[in-house]
Structures are given as structure tokens and as C-alpha cells.
Design a binder for these strands. Structure first.
Length: 846
RNA sequence: GCCCUUGUGGCGGAAUGGUAGACGCAACGGACUUAAAAUCCGUUGGUUUGAACAAAGCCGUGCCAGUUCGAGUCUGGCCAAGGGCACCA
């Protein structure tokens, strides 16, 4: 009897099952199902139009997790959507005259049907969200209004990145090496503009301290967030102005212990007291300086090694500690947005101040010293030491001094303890068309008004938009759209023309998935609190700060608004490493990307070798957090692995009456006679494979590369077992069937198509993806023999197989009686023998 | 400058403080074939002694120390690569 052998044809099989899964809707998540819920999420993509192998990794990792949890009996939510607002669409409109909405939708269709689905992903597409659709951005606007009502959205004048050619503000992400992203010869300038902000700084402390709750997050991500928030403890000290008793300048410092070394004050050029404190003779010079620095780009202003610049204002402040009169300067090395925008100059103990004082010949006064002696400084002394020249504080260690000085200032009312964060409020205004309109109205008589909730969404006008590529937001020229009747007085009013940063859209999409089609509310409270928080989030490390911090902020704010019962959105986070490949343009290995010319498309590979092989390779080549270098050759290796399984199926089907065997009666296997040992080994290996793969795929480990290696080993062992075998006994058929059945079940999350096809060929019920994850026979892993390693001085001398469970003395005797050991012991003195039972004997000699 | 991560064969990578190099790629050999491809079965860290397919020895996880019976793994210092932050007072 010859079973007709069919060649492994991944393209055909994959297409067949993708269609089948879609029509049977096997990945639909059920609200409030009786099974425990599991929310598996991958960061939704920007629809740039073409995914390559570099993108595939994140979807594969997340999909393996989703499929595995489903087989483990969870009610899995695994949704997908598109982060669809953003600049490339607007750019395409400018360059190719395609409306952004059309361009975006075309890309979404392609990515969804030709790419994401072909990867074999298991999304519940009924919950798809597309952030540029009005049924989604209506809720983005609604959220903005909640922030506004809760005093978390406000406008202020702030320095922004400005491109003179585009005549518009750029987001920080759009500034590349200090130049405009569209004009790489145009340095970005700084400009003061009235902009919308979200008050994320209100949550600075909570965002910082709750990092401790996130035990399922990688340490490095938490550390990056911690550094970004940048909490620092110090003091605020008030300085009075000589001759102007009504004005005081508060200054923030982390080194109050150096207060007696203050020899000048510096204000940021944008500080609102600069003008007021400029003396008559200095006024023109100060104004000139302010103008000059305002024109400097961020890059120029912060350039490393840049010489300090600045001008004296011509007025003086009084050091409240010693009554000394000190000059007030302005310099661009002081930032307006940090602390109070003013700094006390202590050249002896701060390197920046030191450089400034040297350049402008200001006094340098040492007040901390290692040995209590004063000496000539060639650079700032920043190490700990003893306080000198500090009046009543002399002789204290500077650490003690910090506290005593603040206490002293507090007692006398000119200073206090102060906590400062590096985190700034979130600038969300964008002078762009392709974004979510900010629902605000400006009325000449009523002022600034929020759009009423029941008239949301504020629709983006479509058609007839002029994308000139210059002159600010295209919305400013949509005169029809722009004018509106004031919701309060009915008079003519104007809409806000800025749109929101797209990070707003992505700060809550994971909540919307819980109830994506609700047109009455942003989401049903019950549903969102059933599904959330996300059990496993997978995404790129590039979002370690922005997206993940913003999302945590949103969740905390929504919790405070009473919409959520949890205050952290993502319980577990996996930050996958990037996919790299040799870039001919850069002459080295670099992140896979179109601009670097090192892209491998998905379709070409899928057509020839299939998505299953690509998935396996991407998971096999390295652990998920590390980088992976794409290698088509390596991926073909995984294709060969799948072919080996495929051929094994036909071989066993023909010769070993292969069938589905989920478990073998344990007794039968253990009563096998001696000559059945290779079979018992195979049974043991099959069970060991189940154990290893289950552990490696669990949320404690996520090491898919070793899981795949274990499966490869099982296949290799099955081949070894059947080598030269012509016929099989019934028990051999059982063990082979058991091994094969469990192999394809273990393989199912990794290579979903081939495992489904083989499951069908085995007459398996339903889908393999709805089978129970295998369990293993613990007893089979217990052996009565062990490999004993014999070492001398920590170096391996011999390995031998012996009975398990022998005493230390017995093992020591076995070791000492080995020929090799005896030979080596000759002429040496035995010092001691270390025995680790069932493992190792280490003989120490002199 | 500060902070973090990573250094293991020709390559990607495995190794609860206990046999370094699992698994794969590449390379080489054998079987099959008229032949090639594919497939199946093997070999493959370096080095020395040896006529040797025998066999045995030595060295080896970026470098230098340390802890330990025993270190790729733990500690300290250094070097290199990558990443984050960067005039944050």
C-alpha cells in the first residue's frame, strides 16, 4: 500500500487555511465569556503601505502568544487596527496630489489583506479601529474635552520648532539632526507660539512611583521612563533685587550647600524679568542678545563644547545667606522651562558656572573642599567635601550642609525644599491637516469655548483642500469649515485650526478595542474593565518613552475621571529587538528599512517558502529582546524543517499507521522490556519536548528560539528512530503517533498553517488551534540512571553512567576507582572530594 | 559627560555556579542517482604529539584581578560595540 505523497506546498496550504479561519471566525473574542480572559496586544501600525520582514517580527511574537493562550483555555482578545493619522499621508498629498484619506485607506487595505493576513495572524478583525475615521476620532475629541474640563488641557506660549521654508511648527520627531525633515538644508528655529498642552506633569510623581508596580516590564524600559521623568530633590531660594524691593527671583538648586559660593545669578533669555531688570546702559545689548539667541536652533544653542555667551543686565541681587551683592546676567545656558528659569552661579562647584565665570572674569569662590583647605581651582570641584567660607556652616560635611542650609532658609522665609521634574507638559498642537481637529471655538465676545459634546465629531473637511506645502495648516484656508456660530452667543466665531499630535490617538486605542463598535460611548465601562488591563503588550523599544508614557498618563487620568477601575494599562510588556540586515548604502548591518536599501519583502518569501517558515526563522534566530539579522538562507533552513515534518507524516502514515494519539497509558510504556529502550527514550524525549516548549513559551520566559530547537530535536530523534525500520509493533506505532500528534500541537502557535493541514490530514476534529495544549507524562522523565561527571580541580576528567540516588560515599568511591583518576592521583596528595549527588564528583589534589 | 545593555566557533545563537558550543546556517565527507539537484546518514572551536582512520595532551566564552572544590555565569577594574539622556542647575 502506498499513500500518495504530496509535496509540501506552503502557498496553497496557507491560502486555504487563511480563508477557512476567516469564514469560520475562530479568533473572535467573546465579551464576558466564562473562560478567563487574556488580552494580547501588539502596537498598531502606521499604514505606510508596505510591511517587510522587519515589521513581521512583532506580529509573529504577539501571534504566537495569542495562539498559545487560546490553546491553554483562555478567552483571548487579539485585536488589530491602524494608527492612521500622520504626516506621510499629507506628504503624499503634497507630492502626488492624492487625498490623504484615499492614500491611507488604500494602504490599510493592502496591509490588512495582502500582508497581515498572509502572515497567518489570528486577529479579531471585527474590533478593528482606524484612528482617522470619524467614528474613532470623535472619541479622541471627546477625550480632549474631558481633559479640558478637568483642567488638564491648557494653552500657553512656548518655544517650538519652526521651519522657515514650511512656515510651520514641527514636532520633535520631525526634526532630524537639527534640520527640517523635508528640507535637510534648513535648520529648525525656535519660535514662541501659543499652543495646546496636556498637563502630564500633574502625574509626574505617580508615573514615576507606579513604575514599581510594573513587575512585568523590562527593567531598561522602566529605567528610561524614570530618567525621562527625571525627579530631582533640591531647594528653591528667593533672591531680592538691590534697589527694587518688590521683585524677587526664585532659583532652583540641588546644591544649596554651595550657597555661600554664589557669585552671580543668571536668567534664561526668555525669562520675564530680563526686560525689567535691564539697566539703561545695558538695555540695547540685552535686547540684541535675546534676539540673537532666539534665532539659534536648539542644536546650535546646545552644541557640545560651545563657548558660553551672555550679557550682564546691569542690576544686582542680594545673596540672602550673606547679604552679598551679586551681578545678574542672562545667558542661553539657562533653560526657561526647567526649575524657575533662573540659576544661582556657583563657579567653584559647577562646571558650567565655572566656564561662564572664567569667560566673563567673574569671582570664583570655593566653599567646599576635600581637606578643608582652599586652593586654586582649574575646574569646578563637584566631589563631596567639607564646607569652608560658609560662616556658621563651616566644618560640616556638604551632605549635612544641604539640609541645614535649607532649614536655615526656611526658618528665615527665603527658601524651601523643592522637588523638580525634568518631564515637561505635552505639546499636542500640530499645524497640520491630517490629524484629529481640536474641538475648540474662538468667539470674539465669549472667548475660547469647547465644542459641545453632542455636536462631536468636528469633522475634518475633505475635498478641495489646498496642500501647498507651505504657509501653515491647510485648515486655515478652509474658510467655509473655519467659520462657525458661537455655541454660546450665536455670533460668528472661528474654529481652532490646529490638529492633535497623533500620539493622542494611540494613547487610548487599546481601551477602544474592548468595545470598538460602540457609537454611543467611548466604551462600555463593564467591557473595558472586563478586558483590561492588557495582559501582554508587544512592541518596539523605540516607544519605550513616548507612547508608553502617554498611555500610562491617559489611563491614570481616565481612572481619575471615573471611567476605569485600573490605573496601569499594560501588565506585561515585551519590547522586541529590531530586525537588521546588511545595508549596501551604509556598508554595515543596520535596521531593516526602505531608506537603507536593506529590505526583504514578505510576499516574495511567502510565495516560495511560506509564512510558516518566515515565522519560524524570525523566532528562531535570536531571543525576542535581541536584534535579529535576517537571513534568507537561515529561513530556508526552517523551511527544510517543515518539509522534514511533512515527509515524516507521509512516511509514518504509510508505515506506522499514524493517527491522533494524545496520551499513552503510562503503565504500558513503563512495562516495556529491555529491548524497548530506544522506544522508551523516544517517549521520554517527546514528553521532555512538551515540557520544554511549554516552559519556554510561557510568560516567565518567552524564549521561542529554544522552544523551536527542542521541536527540531524531537523531529531529529523520530527520524533516527525510524531509520532502517521496515515494520513497527503496535506500541511503536502508538509512541510515534503520540510524538507526532503532540509535535504538531506544539508547533501550532509557531507555524499555524502546516500544523492545521496535518491535523486535518490526521482526521483531527475541529481546528488544531482550538485543541487543548498538550500535557506531559511526568513519570516518563524520571530515569534511574544518571551521567556522573568526574572532575579534578574543577576540570572534567571523565563522564560515566551510573545508578541514580547513590550516597556521597558511594559516588566518591566510584570516582576514586576510575583508571584515569588513579593515574592522575599518582604522586599527588588528595586534599578533599566534593560530591554533588547525582551530578558531579570533584577531586581536589595538591 | 552621565546612565543602561551586550561581548561565547566561519556565522546566528545554547548552557538553574557543575560535561562550554544545544539547535540552525555555512563548509566538508558518505549513501542514493547515468549525473546533478533534492533527500537520508555523518564530520566540523583551536592546537600539540603521533605514520595513523588509533589514541592522548594542552589551550579556549573581550582583557586583568578576585570569590569558590568548581566561573561563560558572581564581584571589582579596564577595553570595545550598541542604545538612552544630555548646559536639567
Amino acid at each position: 500500500m502506498v499513500t500518495s505523497f504530496i509535496l509540501y506546498n506552503p502557498k496553497q496550504i496557507e491560502n486555504k487555511w487563511q480563508k477557512h479561519w476567516e469564514s469560520t471566525q475562530i479568533y473572535k473574542a467573546i465579551d464576558f465569556d466564562s473562560k478567563p480572559k487574556y488580552y494580547s496586544l501588539v502596537m498598531f501600525p502606521y499604514p505606510s503601505g508596505d510591511l517587510h520582514m522587519g515589521h513581521m517580527r512583532v506580529y509573529t511574537i504577539s501571534d504566537v502568544i495569542s495562539r498559545h493562550r487560546r490553546m491553554c483555555g483562555f478567552n483571548v482578545l487579539n485585536p488589530m487596527g491602524f494608527d492612521a493619522f500622520g504626516l506621510p499621508a499629507e506628504n503624499a498629498a503634497i507630492e502626488r496630489k492624492i487625498p490623504p484619506a484615499e492614500w491611507t485607506q488604500k494602504n490599510i487595505d493592502y496591509m490588512k489583506n495582502q500582508q497581515l493576513k498572509r502572515m497567518g495572524t489570528s486577529y479579531d478583525w471585527s474590533r478593528e479601529v482606524i484612528s482617522c475615521n470619524s467614528d474613532y476620532y470623535k472619541w479622541t475629541q471627546w477625550l480632549f474635552l474631558q481633559f479640558y474640563k478637568n483642567n488638564l488641557a491648557y494653552q500657553k506660549e512656548a518655544p517650538v520648532n519652526w521651519c522657515t521654508k514650511c512656515q510651520t511648527v514641527l514636532a520633535n520627531e520631525q526634526v532630524e539632526d537639527g534640520m527640517c525633515w523635508r528640507h535637510d538644508d534648513t535648520p529648525v528655529e525656535r519660535k514662541m507660539m501659543r499652543q495646546w498642552f496636556l498637563k502630564i506633569t500633574n502625574y509626574a510623581e505617580e508615573l514615576l512611583s507606579d513604575l514599581d508596580k510594573l513587575t512585568g516590564w523590562p527593567e531598561r524600559v522602566k529605567l528610561m521612563q524614570k530618567n525621562w521623568i527625571g525627579k530631582s530633590l533640591g531647594a528653591e531660594i528667593d533672591f531680592l533685587i538691590d534697589g527694587k524691593p518688590n521683585i524677587k527671583i526664585p532659583v532652583y538648586t540641588t546644591r544649596p550647600d554651595t550657597a555661600f559660593g554664589i557669585t552671580y545669578l543668571v536668567l534664561a533669555p526668555e525669562h520675564n524679568l530680563v526686560e525689567k531688570l535691564s539697566g539703561e546702559q545695558n538695555k540695547s545689548k540685552v535686547q540684541e542678545y535675546i534676539k540673537k539667541t532666539s534665532l539659534l536652533s536648539e542644536i546650535e544653542r546646545l552644541a557640545e563644547g560651545k563657548e558660553k555667551t551672555g550679557v550682564p543686565l546691569g542690576s544686582f541681587a542680594i545673596n540672602p545667606f550673606n547679604g552679598k551683592k551679586i551681578p545678574i546676567w542672562t545667558s542661553d545656558y539657562v533653560l526657561l522651562e526647567y526649575g524657575t528659569g533662573a540659576v544661582m552661579g556657583v563657579p567653584a562647584h559647577d562646571q558650567r558656572d565655572f566656564e561662564f565665570a572664567k569667560k566673563f572674569k567673574l569671582e570664583i569662590k570655593q566653599v567646599i573642599s576635600q581637606d578643608g583647605l582652599e586652593r586654586q581651582l582649574t575646574s569646578a570641584y563637584t566631589d563631596p567635601g567639607i564646607m569652608i567660607n560658609s560662616d556658621i556652616f563651616n566644618g560640616l560635611s556638604n551632605e549635612d550642609g544641604k539640609k541645614k542650609i535649607i532649614d536655615h532658609a526656611e526658618k528665615n522665609g527665603f527658601g524651601r525644599h523643592k522637588v523638580t521634574y525634568r518631564l515637561r507638559d505635552w505639546l499636542i498642537s500640530r499645524q497640520r491637516y491630517w490629524g484629529c481637529p481640536i474641538p475648540i471655538v474662538y468667539c470674539a465676545s465669549c472667548g475660547l469655548l469647547p465644542v459641545e459634546e453632542n455636536s462631536l465629531p468636528v469633522l475634518l473637511p475633505e475635498g478641495g483642500i489646498e496642500f501647498a506645502g507651505s504657509g501653515g495648516s491647510p485648515l486655515e484656508k478652509c474658510t467655509e469649515w473655519l467659520s462657525i456660530n458661537c455655541p454660546q452667543c450665536g455670533q460668528k466665531a472661528k474654529r481652532e485650526t490646529d490638529t492633535m499630535d497623533t500620539f493622542i490617538c494611540s494613547s487610548y486605542y487599546y481601551l477602544r478595542y474592548a468595545d470598538a463598535n460602540n457609537d454611543k460611548k467611548i466604551f462600555d465601562k463593564e467591557k473595558v474593565n472586563y478586558w483590561l488591563p492588557v495582559d501582554q503588550y508587544v512592541g518596539g523599544i523605540e516607544h519605550a518613552i513616548l507612547h508608553l508614557l502617554y498611555s500610562r498618563f491617559f489611563t491614570k487620568a481616565l481612572y481619575d475621571f471615573g471611567l476605569l477601575t485600573f490605573d496601569e494599562p499594560f501588565t506585561n510588556l515585551l519590547s522586541q529587538g529590531m530586525v537588521t540586515m546588511h545595508s549596501p548604502k551604509e556598508g554595515k548591518i543596520a535596521k531593516m528599512s526602505k531608506s537603507k536599501g536593506n529590505v526583504v519583502g514578505t510576499s516574495e518569501f511567502f510565495d516560495e517558502y511560506g509564512a510558516d517558515a518566515a515565522r519560524l526563522f524570525i523566532l528562531f534566530a535570536a531571543p525576542p529582546e535581541q536584534e535579529v539579522e535576517w537571513s534568507t538562507q537561515g529561513a530556508i533552513g526552517q523551511y527544510r524543517f517543515l518539509e522534514r515534518i511533512w515527509r515524516l507524516f507521509f512516511n509514518l502514515k504509510e508505515n506506522a499507521s499514524l493517527r491522533i494519539v494524545e496520551a499513552i497509558h503510562v503503565k504500558v510504556i513503563h512495562e516495556l522490556p529491555q529491548q524497548g529502550l530506544p522506544l522508551r527514550d523516544l517517549y521520554r524525549i517527546a514528553n521532555y519536548t512538551i515540557k520544554s516548549v511549554s516552559e519556554d513559551i510561557s510568560d516567565k520566559k518567552y524564549i521561542f528560539n529554544t522552544a523551536i530547537a527542542r521541536m527540531t530535536e524531537l523531529v531529529n530523534n523520530m527520524y533516527k528512530f525510524i531509520l532502517d525500520k521496515k515494520s513497527y509493533t503496535d506500541i511503536e506505532c502508538q509512541v510515534l503517533s503520540f510524538s507526532f500528534t503532540n509535535l504538531i500541537k506544539l508547533l501550532a502557535p509557531f507555524a499555524p498553517h502546516i500544523s492545521e493541514e496535518l491535523w486535518e490530514k490526521l482526521d483531527g476534529q475541529d481546528s488544531i488551534h482550538r485543541q487543548k495544549w498538550p500535557t506531559y507524562d511526568k513519570e516518563s522523565l524520571v530515569t534511574d540512571e544518571i551521567e556522573l561527571v568526574i572532575q579534578m580541580g574543577g576540570k572534567k576528567v571523565d563522564v560515566l553512567t551510573t545508578k541514580k540516588g547513590q550516597s556521597q560515599k558511594e559516588l566518591e568511591n566510584i570516582a576514586l576507582n576510575q583508571e584515569k583518576v588513579k593515574a592522575k592521583l599518582e604522586g599527588k596528595e588528595l586534599v578533599k572530594v566534593v560530591v554533588i549527588p547525582d551530578k558531579i564528583v570533584n577531586i581536589v589534589v595538591k
